[in-house]
């Protein structure tokens, strides 16, 4: 068994774990368990990112998904309620119908996706590989992801930073950043 086969086995393991966690999140009504399983889901997704050779993404997903999202969801849960009402039969069937319709649509399109891991797929032959070829001479730093993020697509990243800034301002406006709650009212 070589390295690639072992990685593939790990991938199957991650798939099974993610599916089980997803189903458990649907079934559970206790929000604390749901929030914790969401953190686990993100952490396993981060492990899968490593095996899909996306190391930068994995670091961010591990810190965001297992750290910050979980803390925020826990805080929101404590500020609201700890238990969800059980799903009604009508909602269950409605969701199942929507899910089946959407699922049929995406699975119909599955055949148009490139073969998994193909180097000659349209997604992997265009601009992405051109960045790899040009980075050594133009930017001259080893990590191509950083080069594309900060330099080639700098304008895109600037927009993202402004979106993050806007979200921070929005939360601060909704929930009073100075953090004293509704002090003015009581």
């Amino acid at each position: 068994m070589n390295g690639a086969e072992i990685t593939q086995l790990f991938d199957y393991l991650f798939m099974v774990m993610l599916l089980f966690i997803g189903l458990a999140i649907i079934r559970l009504q206790n929000l604390f368990a749901v929030v914790m399983l969401t953190g686990v889901y993100s952490l396993i997704a981060a492990a899968w990112f490593v095996s899909l050779s996306a190391a930068d993404v994995a670091i961010t997903e591990a810190a965001v998904g297992a750290g910050i999202s979980t803390v925020l969801l826990l805080a929101a849960m404590l500020l609201t309620s700890g238990k969800a009402k059980p799903t009604t039969a009508f909602r269950h069937w409605a969701a199942l119908v929507v899910m089946t319709a959407a699922g049929a649509a995406v699975f119909y399109a599955l055949g148009d996706l490139p073969v998994y891991g193909a180097a000659d797929s349209p997604a992997n032959t265009g601009v992405g590989m051109a960045y790899i070829d040009r980075t050594p001479a133009e930017i001259n730093i080893p990590n191509v992801v950083t080069a594309v993020l900060a330099s080639y697509r700098g304008f895109d990243t600037m927009g993202e930073v402004f979106v993050v800034f806007a979200a921070g301002v929005g939360v601060a406006l909704l929930l009073n950043l100075s953090g004293r709650g509704k002090r003015g009212e009581d």
Binding site: G65, V145, G168
Partner: peptide
């Protein structure tokens, strides 16, 4: 591996947590 999707998703993750926080603030 193709670096372009990595870049797009790297920024999308951080934007995703910011928008999640925004939604949770509305819920609160």
């Amino acid at each position: 591996a193709n670096p372009l999707p990595h870049v797009l998703i790297l920024t999308a993750i951080v934007v995703g947590v910011a928008t999640l926080a925004m939604g949770l603030a509305l819920v609160v």
